[in-house]
């Protein structure tokens, strides 16, 4: 679904953050991504979404070459990116308006958008949050509402950028449950190996601008049973 080849990125050609990186995401894969601070994890997501342009390399998404801004428009409709800071994602005054923003951009009518939004909120256990004011939500609520705004667009792939930072254990396990029940491919950036072990099939580490499979953890992963009653939103 996503195919990155020889992607390089950096703010100057001497110090590259990503150095001829190759990366592939197949349908149904759930991938965890770790790496030290500033190793380019977020940049990788932004390259996939077309928010920053790589210096060199080839990027194929859904078997189509994407280069320019206009190529990325359909990509953004099918890939949902959850930002590190929920305050960046929630910009509308009320929760319902924010969740409906995506579907409305996809050309849905007002009624359809509201229906999708209400369903998504209910699915995430946020029933009754519609009229709440976004900046008055707690950190955990903000995170789940952000996830709702992304899921409301019915993406094929989810990119989650440190979804667990600042969450308490209860919200974390709620998030885990939601992720495992989704019938989606996703990539999660996180420093919490425990969380990744439970939610992903493979964990990669980003180091010196390249990804490598964390094989030492790999055997560990499959000892956890997967929840199989998958559901789409």
């Amino acid at each position: 679904m996503i195919d990155l080849k020889d992607i390089s990125f950096g703010y100057s050609s001497e110090s590259l953050i990503l150095n001829k990186l190759n990366f592939k995401l197949f349908k149904g894969s759930r991938i965890g991504l770790t790496g030290s601070n500033g190793s380019g994890k977020t940049t990788l997501f932004h390259i996939i979404m077309g928010l920053v342009k790589p210096l060199s390399g080839r990027l194929k998404i859904f078997d189509r070459q994407v280069n320019e801004e206009k190529d990325f428009l359909p990509v953004r409709r099918k890939i949902g990116l959850l930002f590190q800071d929920a305050d960046d994602q929630l910009f509308s005054p009320t929760v319902l308006e924010d969740v409906a923003f995506g579907p409305l951009n996809l050309g849905k009518t007002r009624e359809e958008a509201i229906e999708i939004s209400l369903k998504t909120l209910e699915y995430l256990g946020l029933k009754g949050f519609e009229e709440k004011i976004t900046f008055k939500l707690s950190g955990g609520e903000k995170r789940l509402v952000s996830l709702a705004t992304v899921l409301a667009m019915k993406p094929k792939i989810l990119l989650l950028d440190e979804p667990t930072t600042g969450l308490d254990d209860k919200t974390k396990s709620r998030l885990m449950e939601v992720l495992l029940n989704l019938d989606l491919s996703y990539i999660i950036i996180s420093h919490e190996i425990d969380f990744l072990l439970k939610t992903t099939d493979h964990i990669y580490a980003l180091k010196n601008g390249k990804t490598s499979l964390k094989t030492d953890l790999h055997t560990h992963i499959h000892s956890h049973p997967h929840i199989n009653h998958k559901r789409t939103v």
Binding site: H46, M49, L51, L73, R76, R77, I79, G80, L81, F83, D85, D88, Q89, F91, F101, G102, N105, L106, T149, V150, M153
Partner: peptide
């Protein structure tokens, strides 16, 4: 970042 987040949601 807010603008990027909006672009990601089809703005």
């Amino acid at each position: 970042r807010v603008h990027q987040a909006m672009l990601c949601r089809g703005f």
